[in-house]
Amino acid sequence: MRRARAGQLLALLWLAAAALLMLLPFWNLLVFSSHSSAEIFGLPPPADIGAQFPANLQALSATPFWQAMFNSAYVVLMSTLLCLAVSSMAGFALAVYRFRGQSVVLALAVLGMLLPPFMTVVPYFFWINQLGWLDQYRAVYMPAAVSGMGVLLMRQYICSAIPRCLLEIGRLDGCSEWRLYLQIVLPLCKPALATLGVVSFIAAWNSFLLPLVVLPSPEHYTVHVALRAMQSAAGGEWGVVMTGAMFAVLPTLAVLIIAARHWRSILSMTADAEN
């Protein structure tokens, strides 16, 4: 009995230590964003919340940081909405109809999922340059909307959650195929749409290589590219960079908190789609 209790205590301590390690960098981010550069690079380094946050915020607002936040928000919003629309339409087609070339489309979706980004980034840059899309936001959000995982997820969900007879009844009542999709299937797909929305929002917000390559001018920087530029700028105010980094992590944390109640179903749904 005593051994069991010691084991329990040990396990809990081990879990607490792991949780602490996972949360510590967030705490440090808060701490650093409330200190000036001189305090961060002074001895002893700060370990507690300081008083410089308003000053850092003011200095940050003098840089194009909020413009970059806005750019990121725009790109992420567009790519998420586009991804939801495109994936739900393709998933609907694959789940509801039997047609020639169906298996080819499915194979394409899987292949697109497996293709690593480093493979296409260089020719993509060249291609975008040819199209004259260099430095345009659509060069970032259009490719981000192509999600093989999204198509498979929507197909899976429509197959399992929407009874066939519902569609037949709709057709008998004279509903067009488009209205079938828009007014019957889509409203019933809210859980799958929410899942795909969360996953693609997080992926798009954290995307770095693509915007770094195709949005070269500073007024089009997304937030992470802007942070990276602030990092490498000589004599950068580090406290200000940290304040920017804090704002850059907030949106995905907020989405995770909102989705927290449903994360188990999100996880199982994405896992189903990947199988």
Partner: peptide
């Protein structure tokens, strides 16, 4: 899940 959804760039700076 917190570290997983956090941007690599921002946390690398920390």
């Amino acid at each position: 899940m917190l570290p997983y959804v956090t941007s690599a760039i921002a946390i690398a700076l920390v």
